[in-house]
Design a protein around this nucleic acid. Sequence first.
DNA 1: ATTCGTCGAGACGAGGCCGTATCAACGCGT
DNA 2: ACGCGTTGATACGGCCTCGTCTCGACGAAT
Lengths: 202, 202
Amino acid sequence: MPTDGRRVPAGAAVLREDITDAIRDAVFAELAEVGYGRLSIEAVARRAGVGKTAVYRRWSSKLDMVVDVVSTVAGERMDLPDMGSLRDDIEMILMIAGRALRHPLAWKVIPDLLAEAARNPGIAETLHRVLTANQRGMGSQVVARAVARGEIAAEVDPDLAIDLIVGPLYWRIAVSRNELPKADIQRLAVSAAAALGALPRA
Amino acid sequence: MPTDGRRVPAGAAVLREDITDAIRDAVFAELAEVGYGRLSIEAVARRAGVGKTAVYRRWSSKLDMVVDVVSTVAGERMDLPDMGSLRDDIEMILMIAGRALRHPLAWKVIPDLLAEAARNPGIAETLHRVLTANQRGMGSQVVARAVARGEIAAEVDPDLAIDLIVGPLYWRIAVSRNELPKADIQRLAVSAAAALGALPRA
DNA sequence: ATTCGTCGAGACGAGGCCGTATCAACGCGT
DNA sequence: ACGCGTTGATACGGCCTCGTCTCGACGAAT
């Protein structure tokens, strides 16, 4: 935890923030290039142009490092503007998530970490925390609005809603790795809205 | 009485099939345990209880080996019985896919290979071939039946249909890693059917 | 009975990474 | 000016893997 503790004993010298940032960038680049499994501290230090010392002084292990770096970058909460209808709210989510998933680094890093989470509890916990924070929030927000508008039934489970909205998008981008033109995003939004509307009568 | 057209030079001795099988099993086990990135030929041979020689005599590289093993196991085509309605066809797909994704090995191996595909063209090609063969087939099959029944419009894109059907399932099982009771599968089927029905009026 | 390819085992040099330690240089607060 | 902690660099022994090679043993066809 290199967050500024502000406690300087006597003769100064603090972990330099610019170096911490350089290491963070290098971690992401390495993560995208070789994945968590093959990621090595030496390669991160090399890429960041720093000594291994600088890395080990900040984190005690590869897991520590990755978890901290991922948490830092993914900590940004997001507020969703009310677009006026369920369909448009969903389209907004799809555009935001789609842009994030298309990011050249995220596109490689996210599936890699999700796969690693299947065998690494530390990664799994971090990812779960980050994902649920940003998504479950969006889910309940959108569902609550749609219920208030009378567009869907009140019993709709926000988690299931997220599955129906984000699932097809993730599948398309990260699994099929196909193109995703704007027309398809709109079609996905219409479909997801219909899917949510059909929900409670299961 | 040679079973097939085996061409044995002079003094016999063929690659033993039981050993090939043992190696294949070991590859899957290692793939699940450490992932493609960390997988090593030595570990595979060790786990299979064979010498490195036996492995190198069959495949020239790690990529060769994994591609061949994956292709072998995933080559099974599948014919989908007609369940009488779009909703029930979809539920059938979800149950089959859900069972496959819940397999203790597949559950770890599939996301891992999908992540690796983002940086390894050989893996990507293999996976794409295997996935599209088994899924696009199902997609067009189900869509064609639903169109014939008059349940959905004829312009529905089978690929988009697959996104809408499998996406939420994969997201739930492989990404969120939540439970998936049968009631949820049925709800997903209802929703997916509604999503498909809403499609053409985009 | 002989022959020949596969079998397990392991040796080999090369190379990467681990985590720790040591080094002089630098900058900052005192 | 002084002390102190960080800095990059480098070295260390240990471990693992690579891909090739050699060895004796086995088995199946000749």
